[in-house]
Amino acid sequence: MLKKCFLFVCIIMLASCGSKKSSLSGTKVRSKQLVSKEQYRDEMRKKEQQKKVKVDYHRVTSDVNTKQELTATSTVTVTADLIQNYILQYKGIAQDNMVNHGIPASITLAQGVLESGSGQGTLSRNANNHFGIKCHKGWEGPSVRHTDDAPDECFRKYDSPAESYRDHSLFLVGRSRYSSLFELPKDDYKAWARGLKKAGYATDPKYADKLISLIERYSLADYDKEMLAIMGIPSSVYDDAYVDSSVVVTESRVDSIATKKHIVKKGDTLYAIARKYNTTVSDIQRLNKLSGTSLSIGQILKIK
């Protein structure tokens, strides 16, 4: 009887141990499964992050291919679209200055793009200075300080970009060191770009090449051709007369230039136009069949 009881107790104890072992084993299995899920989730997170990095990398690489760095008075990175928008915004002003001062629109636009960083540079944003023109002796207008070739240099400040464009033209026209530029054909942008560099407009040794590259990349010479056609000036003809009325024009030069044209701008009068082209008010009236002296902005006048 005692033996039977002892045997019964042993069986119960063994059964109890077995159930605990099974329970513990189950716990271990479940624990092992939970760890595996966490690891799986971590792996999935890593893969997702890697995918995102790859996508971002390709996006950035694509952007880099369409961006361009412009370095003049400040260094900025701009897109081709930004440059094109800048050109479209200011081409009219550049063409007006070509008529009034004889500087190719292509040169003015290329300099504006480069010097202002397509309007994104520090000087253009803070001072409306799109051409990096420094104060120089005799400047009495507002100014700002900016580090360029030397620290804290004085640069001109304008009320608007249009004022900067006008001052750029007057700056070139009014300085003797640039006088040789106005003997060049108006459609020879390469000669103008190299002439600007030679005259000392910029210290960058690649300045002329940069201007030429911009002109050719964005077809800026088309704006020169457009204005020359409107003014009736054949390609590659010297036209000192419409740049400065004080220049003596020979008969052979007049014949080669043929009929000139003038686009009326705000503030123009027949008397001022006649003086500009070394002619008379009556001659302009006769050529254009004008009975009075009233003019309209944008009106095209024949000038012989």
Rank of each mutant, 00 (worst) to 15 (best):
Q33F: 14
N85W: 02
S219V: 00
G119D: 14
L181D: 03
T108D: 08
S31M: 07
T280P: 00
K289S: 12
K3S: 07
V9I: 14
K28L: 12
I233S: 04
I303Y: 03
S25D: 12
T61D: 03
T61I: 02
H101F: 15
S282N: 12
C10P: 00
I93F: 00
T269S: 15
F8S: 13
V9C: 07
P151V: 01
C17L: 13
A221R: 10
K54S: 12
K157E: 10
L82Y: 05
K67P: 01
R59N: 00
K225S: 03
C17E: 06
A105F: 03
V248K: 14
D148V: 04
V248W: 05
L109S: 08
L170C: 02
E140Y: 05
Y189C: 02
T250V: 06
T250K: 11
D96T: 04
D96C: 01
L211K: 05
T27W: 15
K37F: 12
T73G: 14
K206C: 01
D268Q: 03
E216M: 00
E140W: 01
K206W: 05
I212K: 01
R156I: 07
Y40C: 06
I87Y: 01
L181N: 07
R30V: 08
Q68P: 00
Q84W: 09
Y158G: 00
D96K: 13
S19D: 05
S62Q: 10
D239T: 15
N65G: 03
G18V: 05
V144I: 14
S213D: 10
P185I: 05
V78N: 04
